[in-house]
Nucleic acid binder design. Sequence first.
DNA 1: TCGAACATGTAAAAGGTTACATGATTAC
DNA 2: GTAATCATGTAACCTTTTACATGTTCGA
Lengths: 180, 180
Amino acid sequence: MHVKTLCLGALSLADSTGYDIKKLFESAFSHFQNASFGSIYPSLRKLEDEGAVTCHVEPGDRHPDRKRFSITRQGLQALVDDLSHTPATELVRSDFLVMLFFAHLLPTDVVQQKLDEIEAHYRMELDYLQSIRSDARMTAGMRYGVEQGIAVYQAKLKHLGKHRDALLASHHLPPSATQD
Amino acid sequence: MHVKTLCLGALSLADSTGYDIKKLFESAFSHFQNASFGSIYPSLRKLEDEGAVTCHVEPGDRHPDRKRFSITRQGLQALVDDLSHTPATELVRSDFLVMLFFAHLLPTDVVQQKLDEIEAHYRMELDYLQSIRSDARMTAGMRYGVEQGIAVYQAKLKHLGKHRDALLASHHLPPSATQD
DNA sequence: TCGAACATGTAAAAGGTTACATGATTAC
DNA sequence: GTAATCATGTAACCTTTTACATGTTCGA
């Protein structure tokens, strides 16, 4: 999913500045997409060139001009086309599971620390999603994303709680960790 | 997680060719990491330059020389260091959830089709993970990855089954989809 | 015979992140 | 007064994917 499409999506909800869009990505979207300023600002520029958005400059008294972008009819059409033609995929990249895959090569305390890290991460994401759960402004589709996130993090936490001890108990340092 | 680290990991399990490594990524790893030939072959070259792997060329009778790589002591140490220093993270990128987030802009049949697509995807991944579940060669850490995958896909399928009808029932085409 | 699997590799293109540069405003 | 937030933007860097180039072997 291109950052351009993500920006069009954000602008379909409300006129926004680049900064606003970043905040939206960090809140509503954070558990399944994200983008940095370094990709958002150039995307908005390109979208303007293509006529997908218009820009209204609010002159900065002393700070940088605030550029508020609005989606155009063409932009909305482009968004609908992009969303319709993008295959429904979900991609996971887990450095945590890679680490566990090779955990038999690592000292027990490192594995333990990684388990703590990931548990804290799961809990934080879960808490956040639960805190926004009751926001009435969400559409059914938005709510689905939040609820799926909650279900998934709960499943991961449950799994972790269930297997953590066995994992660490069965863990033995390789005999040749420091020799060889 | 760099492809170099992933290659070292693969080679810690068995001496392999680039092609073998790709197959490992497609099987054991596929639900949480992947890499293409275009990154694997250059990574192996760099690892050889760094002394992390050695290469034994099996001359090709008529096909390209088969290069079988082995991890060295330094390579194993580098792998352990990488794994120990890489933060335990999990990153999700879901084009599906982005689409749903803006589903109120899309025709009902498109949304329905995307739900079918993602359901097929979930089922395929789940079936695959269940098929390798009983492989006795897995370490506890490897098994954890498989079992977490199973738990997560089951949670996603359950969630989909539970909310699918409500999602489609509440779905209305925006009045200005083609006008405006 | 035809497609899939085996096998390696390069080059271009794409895309994004990180870091930097700058500075005002607001809340503690 | 000091840290966080508001606000925009560029450029270098990094990494990876995609597409191409080449040819064999094996099974249906």
